[in-house]
């Protein structure tokens, strides 16, 4: 069986489809509800923000020995708008408003996730 091309094509197609589907389900689960953002630095929650109570958008910097990320908070969503890391993945990821997929800036050990109201 493991020498059959067909077996692998089917298996890998399934992994691809399930992976994409699971990712987008996890990302959109519970999105848009009045949620709390948690900012993690090296495994510790350093700040919690009730996104539902934010009226005027604001920005602030998170600076550690490893670098700085500028975070923008709006009503119901949170985003990293700039970072002094080379890859800029966390910036390009954009705002999150819910779901289980966190914003990850791994070089700075910074993670921002959203605690859904039902948790």
């Amino acid at each position: 069986m493991i020498r059959k091309t067909k077996f692998w094509v089917i298996l890998f197609s399934a992994v691809f489809v399930i992976g994409i589907a699971a990712f987008f389900l996890l990302r959109s689960a519970g999105a848009g509800q009045g949620a709390t953002a948690r900012i993690w630095l090296n495994g510790e929650i350093v700040q919690e923000i009730d996104l539902g109570s934010v009226v005027v958008p604001y920005e602030f910097d998170i600076t550690t020995d490893l670098g700085t990320n500028r975070v923008r908070v709006e009503h119901g969503s949170i985003a990293v708008v700039s970072a002094d890391c080379p890859d800029q993945v966390c910036v390009r990821q954009g705002a999150i408003s819910g779901g289980y997929i966190p914003i990850a800036c791994v070089p700075h050990e910074l993670v921002i996730d959203i605690l859904s109201p039902e948790d």
């Binding site: 990850a104 791994v106 050990e109 993670v111």
Partner: peptide, 9 residues
């Protein structure tokens, strides 16, 4: 590195 389990998703 980040000690944050949510990354596993």
């Amino acid at each position: 590195v980040t000690s944050t389990p949510g990354i596993a998703y």
